[in-house]
Structures are given as C-alpha cells and as structure tokens.
C-alpha cells in the first residue's frame, strides 16, 4: 500500500438471522485502502463481496446486521457513527456506484433532478450551481449535449448512458472514496471497457480511492493496484495485483486464474480450467477450510478448526494450511503447459 490509508477494516462481519439459522455471508474481513489507489474485491457470486460493499456504506438490507472491530474512514470511526452522521458522509465523501443502472435511477424524476439532488443535499449551493456541476460532470463522463440530457428521464437513456449518469452522480460532491459494485456487469462488453477506462481516468484526475467489486479477473488485471480474493465470506488471499497474478498462493486463486484465457499463452482449443463443486452453505460457523470440498490438495487436517491468514509480507497473505513453498510449486505446476 502506498500512502496513508483512507479506509481501514478489521473484523468485519455481516450476519442475517433467518428462520433456519444464522446466515454469515461476510466473516472477519480485514483490509485497508490507501488514498488514490484501486482496491479490487474479487470472487464468484454469493461470496459476500456485494454485502461487504453495502456493509461499508451501512446500506445493508433491513434484516442484516453488521459488526466490526475497526471501521475507520479518514480518521472517523464508521462503526460508532449514527445513521444521521453516516448519511452526511454518504454521497459526500464516500459515494457508491451500483451494478444495475437500469433500476438504480428513479423512473419518476429527470436525470438532472437526481444529479442536482446529490449536491444540494451536502453543499450550500443554488440549484443553478448544482446544474452547472451536473453538466460539467456529464461531459466529463462522456455524455454529449449534457444540458439537454438533464431534462430526460432514465427510461430514455441506454444502459451505458445510465451507468455514466450513475458515475457522474457519485462524483457530484467530489468524494474521496468510491465503492463500485460490479459497475459494468450489466453492460455490453464494448461499453464495459469504456466505462472502466472512464473510471480509471476519473480516479487519476480526482485522486480518489476506488473499491471495485467484481467477479471478473480480467477487470482486476486491468485496473487494480491491490486485490483481495473472497471465498465463502472470507478473504482467502490478498496482495498487490501483479504479485497475485504472477504467484497465486491459494488453490482457489489458482483455480480462478486457470479459468481465464491468456492471449499468447492459452492455446486455441485448449481446455480452460473450471472449479468443480459448489460454494458451501454460509449458515453458521465454518469448520475448517471452506474450499476443501472443491480443492485438489485437500487433506484431513483441512476439516478441523479455523484456518488463519498466513502473512507472507506486510501486503501479502493467504488462507491455507499448505506451506508457501508447496503453494508456489502447485502454481508453477498448474501454469505449465
């Protein structure tokens, strides 16, 4: 990590009490994000990454409960903040971009109204000033004829345009941290690339920290500085992105990397990897490693007790009983043609 952390998370848990038992979709998460960096949380659907994002914003569904040993944003303890003070931060210093641009905008109001509202809430500005800011940002996110777009309703815009509007909306107050939850998943592939480039460019321009939540390692490789791999509610591996891609330690990360074709290295027609099996139930406590039923290296000790993160360096850790040397050897064996 470069520079001072803007967000520090330790021991973050999300629990959802259900009739059949307690669901624990996020377990004992710890990570930190520095100013200006892009931190990716990657994992397959249902691993708890979206709930992590909502937990940071305190926007969890009604029944879900959040707890954390440490949840600091720019020196403020978010865990102790009441809803009122948290609402003051949201949209001002921390903003969020959601996955579904088609439904994330209110169909009853114009784009302009919804953009201006974000600024009028936090700044003492006139509606005209807010409108100027909205036009400025719409142009920034690559929307032409911005001032006439302001009068349009969400249903009149395509998915890609709406996601650009969502990004502009997140930028209205110049936030220090943006949490983007699968911002490109619902979009066409060509639009995905444009939106990612846009996010990266804006991040550099406004020196924001970005937490990008995705299931797509291709996206991680393109934009991330550091990455955390999540599986069954836990971080199973974390480190700088180049490091993780070059030397994945955890069998799950290795499996994930095998699933993406690499131009020039993956032969045409060659079999891409897949990870057999299913994610375990997130009910109650996990006994042993959550991945062991799908892991080719699993052994009896994997079923017992909690498995801690093994630190390799201040930046790098993984959650597996295998010693580092064996992990590296496995990775090398898997990468060999």
């Amino acid at each position: 990590m470069i520079g001072e952390p803007i967000l520090e998370v330790e021991g973050l848990d999300v629990v959802i009490p259900l009739l059949a038992g307690t669901l624990r979709p996020v377990r004992d998460l710890a990570f930190a994000v520095a100013r200006g960096e892009t931190f990716c949380i990657v994992g397959e659907s249902g691993c708890g990454k979206s709930l992590t994002a909502l937990a940071l914003m305190n926007l969890l569904p009604r029944r879900a409960r959040r707890s954390a040993r440490r949840l600091r944003f720019a020196g403020t303890d978010l865990a102790r903040l009441d809803e009122r003070r948290m609402a003051d931060l949201r949209g001002d210093r921390i903003a969020m971009i959601f996955q579904e641009p088609m439904t994330a905008l209110n169909p009853a109001y114009t784009i302009g109204n919804q953009l201006e509202e974000a600024m009028l809430r936090h700044r003492r500005v006139s509606r005209a000033e807010a409108r100027d800011r909205a036009i400025f940002l719409l142009e920034k996110v690559g929307i032409t004829a911005a001032s006439s777009r302001l009068r349009q309703y969400p249903h009149q815009l395509s998915g890609g345009l709406r996601q650009r509007v969502m990004i502009a909306m997140a930028l209205m107050c110049g936030p220090e941290l943006i949490i983007a939850d699968e911002p490109t998943t619902a979009l066409d592939v060509t639009i995905q690339a444009q939106i990612l480039h846009l996010l990266a460019a804006l991040q550099r321009e406004f020196r924001m920290a970005v937490i990008l939540i995705t299931h797509d390692l291709g996206i991680v490789a393109r934009v991330a500085d550091r990455v955390a791999v999540m599986y069954a509610g836990q971080i199973v591996e974390t480190g700088a992105v180049a490091d993780i891609f070059a030397r994945p330690m955890h069998p799950y990360t290795q499996g994930l990397l095998r699933c993406i074709p690499v131009p020039g290295r993956t032969r045409r027609g060659a079999h891409l990897g897949s990870i057999p099996g299913l994610v375990p139930s997130l009910m109650g406590e996990l006994a042993g490693c959550g991945f062991r039923n799908r892991c080719v290296y699993a052994s009896p000790p994997c079923a017992a007790g909690g498995i801690g993160l093994v630190p390799l360096s201040p930046q790098r850790a993984y959650r597996c009983l295998l010693p580092p040397r064996e992990c590296a050897a496995n990775a090398a064996a898997a990468a060999a043609p």
Partner: peptide, 13 residues
C-alpha cells in the same frame, strides 16, 4: 442456495 454439508453433525435436517 445449495446446502453443502461439511460433516454429518452440521447437516441441516
């Protein structure tokens, strides 16, 4: 969601 069992004791009846 699929109920994957880790051990007999954890099985949800």
């Amino acid at each position: 969601m699929t109920v994957e069992t880790f051990s007999g004791a954890e099985r949800i009846l």
